[in-house]
Design a protein around this nucleic acid. Sequence first.
RNA 1: CGGGGUGUGGCGCAGCUUGGUAGCGCAUUGCGUUUGGGACGCAAGGGUCGCAGGUUCAAAUCCUGUCACCCCGACCA
Length: 642
Amino acid sequence: MRPTVRSVRKSTRPWTSGSSGIPPVWQGNSAGAREDRLARVLMRMSKLFLRTLREDPADAEVASHRLLVRAGYIRRAAPGIYSWLPLGLKVLAKVEAVVREEMDAIGAQEVHFPALLPREPYEATGRWTEYGPSLFRLADRKEADYLLAPTHEEMFTLLVKDLYSSYKDLPLALYQIQTKYRDEARPRAGLIRGREFIMKDAYSFDIDEAGLAASYDAQRGAYERIFTRLGLDYVIVSAMSGAMGGSRSEEFLFPCEIGEDTFVRSPGGYAANVEAVHTPSPEPVEASLIAGLPAAEVADTPDTPTIESLVEVANATRPKPDGGAWTGADTLKNVVVTLVSPTGVRSLLVIGLPGDRQVDAKRLEAAVFPAEVEPAGEADLAAHPELVAGYIGPGVLGPNGAPRDDTDGARGAVRYLLDPRVVDGTSWITGANEAGKHVFGLVAGRDFTADGVIDVAEVREGDPAPDGSGPLELARGIEIGHIFALGQKFAKALDLKVLDSGGKAVTVTMGSYGIGVSRVLAAIAENTCDDKGLSWPVGVAPAHVHVLATGKDEAVFTTAQGLADELVAAGIEVLYDDRVKVSAGVKFADSELLGLPFALVVGRGLADGVVEVRTRATGEREELAPEVAVARLRDLLASASA
RNA sequence: CGGGGUGUGGCGCAGCUUGGUAGCGCAUUGCGUUUGGGACGCAAGGGUCGCAGGUUCAAAUCCUGUCACCCCGACCA
């Protein structure tokens, strides 16, 4: 901050001399020297390092990617890696400024770590291996291992450990805005999923769970303010903590067709990542009624290895007692998967779920983490001859299985978990563990039990929300923020402890909070662009007003120059298209492509004493006298950023 | 990792089937005419046709290999 400069500037701003003294949002009220610099310099198109492209780049599909490249904001340097050009960098600085302001406002303090880090801390937390191939690794000349950080939990934890050792130092929140590296298997959509990207990551340090909850809520509130200020709609969904461990976790999603995250929401306000959806169980049938259900019967069902064929044969041979037709939902499908533990141990798992549902791979991965899932191979099945492909039933699974000679009398070598819908008292058609045979009327709780419940069936449009708030709707979104109540995973691994008031060492409880800054920029572009180009909200636009001088008349240029200077003097950021020998049509098209919120056109109307003010987002145009143009634009800016 | 596709001036593409001196549009440079919706004329610069090997008198074009990139999926805060 440069107080002297700011105070001088303040006195030149007529609209800040009122009662509030608070400058308009679009002024960047506490973003520091960089913002000051932006406001005071007139950018000239004739000098600006910019080349707009008339045609879409061949490798860009989504709108934000296409337009950011066409408008000269970014250039691709390598797959998933982009260079920032002057205009793009200005927008990035604006987005960062909003993030900084809101982080600072909740008392988080900015630090900055290297992106290039040694292996050791990541070894200590297991992430050197856990992160897998997504981690950029490299070696120095002495063959020592380094990595390009995908996220910085370890470094923050170690820094705090380095300096703090008392409960009196907590709570503490630190953040940085840093370049992160992840060697994504398939980068795509430009800035939305890159291998190098800019992220704000914050970490909270508390003495206990209650402190963590308060820190978490503070961050959550700051996130809401950040995305609101950036004009991005967002949905907060509960998420699985996944690889990060910990308890509470929420994602901020920008709902958008091209989003890569699928989430669900209900009319009543429930929202969750598909991985985190909790399927409600039906009420179990009372034990007294279960006894009265018809006994299970084995029946021949030749050539029915699939649910579809089974339903067909069932309807042809054993009509449903209630007169209706059997459907996949009446069958209990038992899906075999192989789990590989982090230490490499393979084991089989059978998941029993209604036959009309598929296992959702993402939900399964999340449910069994940190184990990995592989499809069951021939070798896996060969080790369990009791599993008859296509006719697997509960009879040989989990607690229902026969004692095994080779396992000290343990029953059921294969672990068996059921979908929450398969409650006690429900009756099913399912495999009889013999080729060509199924069991009808096999009742859960009476005829078989399982080792537990696993909620990994696909979530469908129309499924009931777990909180009873109505049918679920599936939607897609871009993950723009993610907050985790990490707990003690990193503090334990790196031994971050402080002394409590009783002089006892206690492990610190942490939270981690990320915002994909460069991704947010792309999301804003995606959100506001149209077929003509970008269209930035006032708060993040590379400049506020695009002054266009059209025509060849000398007076046009001198008037435009004069107005541009006036605007700058009024603290408004200006991009001035002073190019000569460029036709009006080209200037208009470029202006729309670049997407500044307002344009001031000085051209043929000047002879009649008028200039034109255009609003990019709405396409509105108004003609007015040059003398009042600056005041008008000031009003428009003030109301646009209100 | 599976499927599909593409590599030809800075960008977007044609040429390849049927081998014969590498082309178009945009952009760039110069001159002139234009100037409110991506102008026009004339002239100019710029390409080891991804790379390697092979076939051939001759390869952007045919053959073999290889690399890279893009899209869909898998995977991934």
